[in-house]
Design a binder for these strands. Structure first.
Lengths: 205, 205
DNA sequence: ATTTATACTGTATATTTTTACAGTATATAA
DNA sequence: TTATATACTGTAAAAATATACAGTATAAAT
């Protein structure tokens, strides 16, 4: 495959970006606008060169008739990158960019239910449920939780992962460790926000 | 998402097929030609309906300004499907088609080390390591294992998941449960095949 | 010194394309 | 019976677009 000049490379990138953004290829004029050219012929010439070098195909007579033959974006079909969030003590909104520790290539549909992010477990309060420190619990953002679900709840400035049990105004957040005690919340006195529930667990050995 | 009429569905399919074939969306006239309509307005009306129902977006004023919002082709962008293998007692080659219980959409690189298949855990011999019955342990096929690794070993006709410890001719396969005892193998008397080692664990809640 | 390739501007036009408007026909629901 | 939704035909005009042609400028190659 022949090498591209700097400008040709820019034009190809422009086409690819436009395609990714809109779902259809740009016109000559749009390429010009994007790259600062003042004549549609500038874009035309670059497109012809790109066609000759085998990077694109041009359907003559068709508007926007450009198709990518050989992408220059190494663009490895990027798999989903699911965010990992630390169990932050400060009650900041759980899924904020600054709370994302890292990302893991992982299909959000690998469990029976889809999930939105991983929560990194701190402490041993769920050890008897086989949930260890630093395990990643897959959390689906929802407020639709049932008694017995493993849920992420925010109480004031603390976020916690526990079993959920609600009766009338009384909310119990139950750990799986004899050394820890159940958190009891009277919902008339204190607010509790259900951030989501666990749909699975992942541990790296 | 609203249901599509038969004709609307045909038009959406036509757009998707055209897009896959050429790399850019069709014009109204091209849709007509493909589906046998005689007026570009036929296509236009269907496209408007598809837009209203949220299946496509139309960039007004742009030629071929159609983008797919919700594909009707179930076409699930096929992610990697990692096989799940039961802990088969019969010592058949672990990764044979007939041993695959199911497959899970899952990136083989989600753990620190890549893996080849999931092993579905039977029994409670590793419970104190937080590995429960029916947990899926991600196995990398390798014979390069170190003492302390969690490994899959085949002894005669039995496959087992245990901690690995080897000293000279003596192989110990150590469980994580007080009620189970370590399997000791004298390698001069009995063969042991290391199938692989665990690089991670997955559990569905 | 002259060619050659790259990289454009500027203009113009034929063609493509969107899109509005005016109808027709049919089935289903009120 | 009268709407109302679906499903078109047919026409036409405005707008978008491709694309040809005539230039200018610059750097590198011959």
């Amino acid at each position: 495959m022949k090498e591209l000049t700097k400008q040709q490379s820019k034009v190809l990138a422009c086409v690819e970006v436009y395609l990714n953004k809109t779902g259809f290829p740009p016109t000559r004029a749009e390429i010009c606008k994007e790259l600062g050219f003042k004549s549609p012929n500038a874009a035309e010439m670059h497109l012809r060169a790109l066609e000759k070098k085998g990077y694109i195909a041009i359907q003559s007579g068709s508007s926007r008739g450009i198709s990518i033959v050989k992408s220059q974006q190494t663009f490895e079909q990027s798999p989903d990158q699911m965010p990992v969030i630390g169990l932050v003590a400060a009650g900041s909104p759980t899924l904020a960019e600054e709370n994302i520790e890292k990302r893991i290539p992982c299909d959000p549909n690998m469990f029976a239910d889809s999930f939105d992010y991983f929560l990194k477990v701190k402490g041993l309060s769920m050890i008897e449920a086989g949930i260890h420190e630093d395990d990643l619990v897959a959390i689906k953002k929802t407020t639709d939780v049932k008694n017995g679900d493993l849920v992420v709840v925010r109480l004031e400035d603390e976020v916690t992962l526990k079993y959920f049990k609600k009766t009338n105004h009384n909310l119990e957040l139950i750990p799986a460790n004899k050394d820890f005690s159940t958190i009891e919340v009277d919902l008339r006195e204190q607010e509790a926000f259900v951030e989501g529930k666990s749909v699975g667990l992942v541990r790296t050995h």
